[in-house]
Amino acid sequence: MKKTLIAGAALAALLTGSMALAQPAPGQKRGPDANQDGVVTQEEARAQAAKMFERIDFNKDGKIDKADRDARMAERFKQMDTDGSGEVSLAEMTAAREARQAKRAERMAMRADRGPGEPGARMGGKRGGRGMGMRGHGGMRGGMMRLDADKDGAITLAEFEAGALERFNRHDTNKDGRITQEERAAAREAMKQRWQQRKAAPQG
């Protein structure tokens, strides 16, 4: 079959996934609740932000910018281009998509098998600890670049941690330096209500 070269915009749409959702190494704990006690402290949130920053800083230059996105896209393209031709065929795209779907199904099955008290189990509809809201910082578009406080086109570790702590403080409703399962559930419910209000609002 003749190879089909994927143009830049189409390839970006295909490969772009949340950079902040990069999978941790096997055996590495996920989510900010490091000791899995159901409570997230400021220290845990800061430590999780540092780990996440390290994963997103793909070229390890101490900042997150367009170069990281480009490097990550190039790596994913290389992984998809299984025959090393420099082009991605429809068959290679299909194989990559099916592999992602299989991994996603496997993760969902593993979550379903975990009991409510086990590490990584869902708590109130979100995976334990992961619902801290860092997901909203994924990728180099939209919310992620709002962390760029000095608007220089790059996000430093200090800016990344500041964003994580700002979100932490919003969820820490009683300001005791800890986010409980109840506070996470309340934050999710508030977010759900905001989405419902947006959907119900008349479109101009």
Results as ranks from 00 to 15, higher is better:
T41Y: 07
E44A: 09
A45E: 05
A45C: 04
A45P: 00
R46A: 09
R46I: 03
A47G: 09
A47I: 02
A47N: 05
A47L: 07
Q48V: 02
Q48R: 08
Q48T: 07
K51T: 04
M52C: 14
M52P: 03
M52F: 11
M52R: 15
F53C: 05
F53G: 03
F53M: 08
E54R: 15
I56N: 00
D57T: 00
F58D: 04
F58Q: 06
F58S: 10
F58Y: 12
K60R: 11
K60G: 00
D61N: 12
D61H: 03
D61L: 01
D61T: 03
G62P: 02
K63Y: 14
K63C: 01
D65C: 03
D65H: 08
D65S: 15
K66M: 13
A67V: 07
D68C: 07
D68L: 10
D68Y: 06
R69A: 08
R69M: 09
D70A: 14
D70W: 05
D70V: 07
A71E: 14
R72A: 15
R72G: 07
A74H: 08
A74Q: 06
R76K: 04
F77V: 07
K78D: 02
Q79L: 12
T82I: 13
T82Q: 15
T82L: 05
D83P: 04
G84H: 03
G84V: 11
G84P: 03
G84K: 12
S85P: 01
S85K: 04
G86I: 05
G86M: 07
G86T: 06
G86K: 02
E87F: 15
S89T: 08
E92M: 06
E92T: 14
T94H: 12
A95D: 06
A95K: 10
A96L: 06
A96Y: 12
R97V: 13
E98Y: 08
A99V: 01
A99W: 06
A99C: 03
A99D: 10
A99R: 14
R100W: 10
R100S: 13
A102M: 05
A102H: 08
K103A: 02
K103E: 10
K103D: 15
E106L: 09
E106H: 15
E106Q: 07
R107A: 08
R107F: 10
M108D: 09
A109D: 14
A109Q: 14
M110F: 12
M110P: 02
A112R: 15
A112C: 04
R114V: 09
P116Q: 05
G117E: 00
G117C: 00
E118C: 00
E118F: 00
E118H: 00
G120T: 01
G120R: 01
M123I: 10
G124W: 04
G125Q: 11
K126A: 13
K126F: 13
R127A: 10
R127W: 12
G128P: 00
G129I: 13
R130M: 04
G133L: 01
M134F: 15
R135P: 10
R135E: 14
G136D: 05
H137D: 09
G138M: 12
G138S: 15
G138I: 10
M140R: 11
M140Y: 03
G142H: 13
G143N: 11
G143R: 14
M144I: 01
M145W: 05
R146T: 12
R146I: 03
L147D: 02
L147W: 07
D148H: 04
A149I: 12
G153R: 01
